[in-house]
């Protein structure tokens, strides 16, 4: 437990030092999150076969927001190059497992929040516009966030150079 606390304390200090860079990263993330809220406000029943690209767009935006969310914990710019933070921690008395576990904790907290928010929007939109609520309205945001955001996030944690 102490190691997790130490990794979290390290992350907190690093984010503090990198505040100016992170403000920009957050702004970009919020921009794409806003689009996602709009896209999930379309009830699934309304989407026809020709609207398939909306689902593709949601997938891409989910990848982008997760990437921008995890980036401050995984990568840092140094003398114009991007290096992984894990490399800086590789000779410290903390295991890769403990570091990854803390990153996964952040990821799950984020996708839980995203999933719940998109679920609420989808449910409300379905009830308001379609006067019905189907099980697909509940599964759709959860699966999209769980699959695209969750799996890609895990991939970025274990292979940090995948991150944008």
């Amino acid at each position: 437990m102490k190691k997790f606390h130490t990794v979290e304390a390290f992350d907190c200090k690093l984010l503090n030092y990198e505040y100016n860079n992170i403000v920009l990263i957050k702004a970009v993330r919020y921009f794409f999150e806003a689009f996602l809220y709009l896209l999930f406000a379309m009830p699934l029943q309304e989407l026809k076969k020709e609207d398939r690209q909306i689902v593709i767009l949601i997938s891409i935006f989910l990848l982008i927001v997760v990437s921008f969310y995890l980036q401050p914990y995984l990568l840092i710019k140094e003398a114009g190059k991007t290096v992984t933070i894990n490399k800086k921690l590789s000779y410290l008395p903390v295991s890769h497992f403990d570091i990854s576990k803390v990153r996964c904790k952040y990821l799950f907290k984020y996708i839980r929040k995203l999933g719940l928010c998109f679920l609420c929007i989808q449910v409300i939109a379905s009830i308001v516009f379609e006067r019905q609520l189907l099980v697909y309205n509940i599964l759709y945001p959860l699966i999209m966030v769980g699959v695209f955001a969750g799996i890609s996030g895990l991939g970025m944690i274990y292979f940090p150079k995948w991150t944008i």
Partner: peptide
């Protein structure tokens, strides 16, 4: 000679960041 510290920060900032990992 490996790059195991944060080169854009000062010595004391690096110490505060990384020192706490040691008991």
């Amino acid at each position: 000679e490996e790059n195991s510290f944060f080169y854009q920060y000062s010595a004391i900032q690096n110490a505060k960041l990384l020192g706490e990992f040691y008991s």
